[in-house]
Design a protein around this nucleic acid. Structure first.
Lengths: 234, 234
DNA sequence: CGAAATCTTGACTGTTTGATAAAACTCTAA
DNA sequence: TTAGAGTTTTATCAAACAGTCAAGATTTCG
């Protein structure tokens, strides 16, 4: 652990004690973070500029810097908030549930996030492309332990013959990559599908395809009953 | 097609006619493009700086600008070269081959590219994240027609009962995303797999997993012979 | 109301960045 | 060997950039 605990909250510095947020503060910070999400998700940390964000938020640069003292503070506020929501669906996978429905709803949720929060997905992708300099430690601790935990759930299902035996870590990677692809590579997806199929229906088509791929691909094979435990009802 | 055919070759401009490249030219352009690939793939077009690239190439900034007059020229030279190599594996899919082996070798080739050319993969990803401003037209024409062509090959196999019926376009997206994930999200993959499994063996594990996922998932289902054409020998 | 707290702005600073000009140097081929 | 093509460097520029400051405007609340 280290001591770089800047919580994007520079107002604390000038106030003597912790204090409630003003109406204007809430409003402006929201506008700033929204504009910053646009900028950072499209151009990365270095490529985005404060002027650009300020313009997107409809305020002057010094005014923006009144709420977030440094460019980094805005970025870190976004990243911190991002990680929370980004991992929620994975946490939701339930050991007591049935394998295929659990995976199905996980895939669906991740795909919905790609559809509804594409900027967040791109921000995350951008951070990864840069080598995750700001969150590498978090990935190695928080993320790793969460994924390890869920991988063991999947392994349990596989041992019970309720799921085809594959590497559970790589399975999770595959679900991440295929779903997030529809946010991160949206331009490409639209361009390749063309005006007809690249419209709003593309997410439903993707959902259908991904369920076919993962669920059929992972359904336990029909093998002689002697060599493998019976599949439970689903 | 359009007329923006700047082939990153600004030396033509000052020479009266097309001329052969000097030893030094070849050497320096190579060093520049290598350093630029590092910079652009990690920080995107806006985030990368000429100074950074010049330093990576071991030369002064004005010297670099002698070979490529503008930052954009370097970037465009990279992108142009990238698209060629990036689509080669897809073109290689053979209508006359057998479905599963063809897919298997395509997946393997794409995964090898993620392993051997991660910077190229990240450069491409970065361009996508920014909305592909410089190659959108190419995606809509060249890429689309190539993917359409191969999707029809897959559809033919599906109609013949040699491949499970899924959306072929989304199948191609899935292969792209899962394989490129190992280049673009490399930090995350390493962090999650940990020091033990995140080493050099991760690509072989990934290959094993992806083949299990795609090939088992796409193998034609065992259905009554009457309802579906017989599977050809493979 | 009116004073304190909060918010906004214009003007500014030092630095980085993309790009240019011209002089100086090096290589190459006749 | 030497003229000229090709290469490198020094010096420089204007714009873009992150961030500061103090003064003015607005909101909040007793």
């Amino acid at each position: 652990m280290q001591a770089d605990d800047q919580s994007g909250d520079n107002l604390m510095a000038r106030a003597t004690a912790t204090q409630r947020k003003t109406r204007i503060q809430v409003e402006n910070e929201g506008r700033i973070l929204g504009a910053a999400l646009d900028a950072f998700s499209a151009h990365g940390f270095r490529g985005a500029t404060i002027d650009q964000i300020a313009e997107g938020a409809g305020m002057s640069k010094p005014n923006l810097l009144y709420y977030f003292r440094r460019k980094q503070d805005i970025y870190e506020a976004l990243i911190a908030h991002l990680l929370e929501t980004w991992l929620a669906p994975l946490e939701h996978i339930d050991d007591d549930g049935d394998p295929l429905p659990e995976l199905q709803s996980y895939i669906r949720r991740k795909l919905e996030m790609a559809r509804d929060f594409p900027r967040e997905s791109r921000l995350f992708a951008n951070e990864m492309l840069q080598g995750a300099p700001r969150i590498k430690r978090l990935l190695e601790t928080q993320l790793k332990s969460l994924v390890d935990e869920k991988a063991k759930v999947l392994q349990g299902w596989m041992r019970a013959g309720r799921l085809n035996r594959v590497d559970p870590w790589h399975l999770i990677f595959a679900i991440w990559s295929t779903t997030q692809h529809y946010a991160d590579f949206d331009v490409q997806v639209r361009a390749v599908l063309g005006p007809d199929r690249g419209g709003d229906g593309r997410f439903e088509d993707a959902a259908r395809f991904l369920e076919a791929l993962f669920l059929d691909g992972l359904r336990p094979a029909a093998v002689p009953a002697a060599t493998m435990p019976r599949v439970r009802e689903i």
